[in-house]
Simulated assay, not measured.
Amino acid sequence: MPTPSRILVPVDLMEGSRAIIDYAVQLARPFNASLELLHTWEPPQYVAPDLLVAAPGWSPQSLEKTALDAARKELEALVKELQSPVPITHRLEVGEPGAAIVRIAETGGFDLIVMGTHGRRGLPRLLLGSVAQKVIARAHCPVLTLHVHEEK
């Protein structure tokens, strides 16, 4: 199996994302691999993504633009804070996370996916699904999952 040269790191920008990125950086370093952070925003099914969001002092903008702008700022701050020894890029996608991760990994020529899993069980897993499980089942390349411990 060839060594990885391009690693895709899907992040949900919740607690634990930094630990996943740090692990991926340490994994990439000996191989001189590059990382691409991917955040996927899935529009709520009960609200139109072009719904206008407004607050005093703001000009109205769509829910999608608001969500993507916030995620972009958070990703940029995260990358800046890392001061990584390996090249890191980032991107945002709109759509169902599992499908988007698999599509980006394949079309982008990634050798490895490093992602977190929350380890949900029961009703939360039934309602939220398992993005990691979907990616593992459909990815063309190896997938390394890391358990994300959530604060209680």
Rank of each mutant, 00 (worst) to 15 (best):
W58R: 13
V47F: 07
R72I: 01
P2C: 00
L92N: 08
S17G: 12
R125G: 08
V9E: 11
P43S: 01
P142Y: 12
H90Y: 15
L51S: 14
V131Y: 10
V47S: 09
A67K: 13
H147G: 00
P10R: 12
A137H: 12
G119P: 01
G95M: 09
N32G: 11
L8R: 09
V25C: 06
P56A: 13
I88R: 06
V143Y: 06
P60Y: 05
L82S: 12
R91Q: 15
G109W: 01
A132P: 06
G108R: 01
Q45I: 10
E76C: 02
M115G: 04
V148W: 07
S130T: 08
V114E: 07
K152A: 13
L144Q: 12
A100G: 00
T107F: 00
M14D: 11
P49T: 02
T40M: 03
H147C: 00
E106F: 08
T3C: 00
V94P: 03
P44R: 14
Q133V: 02
L52V: 05
V53R: 08
E151S: 15
F31I: 03
K134D: 09
S130E: 10
V86P: 08
G129C: 08
F31T: 07
V135S: 03
V25S: 02
G16N: 05
A48D: 15
D69V: 01
A105S: 15
P60A: 04
Q61S: 13
V53E: 01
L27S: 00
V47Q: 10
L123A: 08
V102P: 02
L82Q: 15
P4L: 06
D111H: 13
E96T: 13
P30G: 06
I101Q: 02
G129H: 11
P60C: 02
L52D: 05
R121Y: 04
A100V: 04
L68K: 13
T107V: 07
P85T: 05
P4N: 09
E15F: 08
G129F: 06
T89K: 13
E15A: 14
I20M: 09
K73A: 13
P85W: 11
L52P: 01
G119T: 07
A55M: 14
L112C: 04
S130M: 10
L8G: 06
A54M: 11
D12W: 09
L68E: 03
S5Y: 05
D50Q: 15
E81Y: 10
E106S: 13
Q83K: 15
L35A: 01
V86R: 12
D12H: 09
G95V: 03
L75A: 04
R125D: 04
T89F: 00
L112V: 07
L13Y: 06
T3P: 10
L63F: 01
I136V: 15
D50Y: 12
S130P: 08
S17I: 05
L38Q: 00
R125A: 14
Q61W: 00
T117G: 02
I136C: 07
A55L: 14
F31W: 14
A137G: 09
G16C: 04
Q61K: 15
A132N: 10
F31K: 05
V148E: 06
P49Y: 03
G95T: 08
A28Y: 02
A99F: 07
R120I: 03
G98E: 04
G109R: 00
W41S: 01
D50R: 13
R138W: 05
I101S: 05
Y46I: 12
E36P: 00
D50H: 13
A54G: 10
T3K: 12
C141A: 03
S34W: 02
L68D: 02
A24F: 05
T107L: 11
E64R: 14
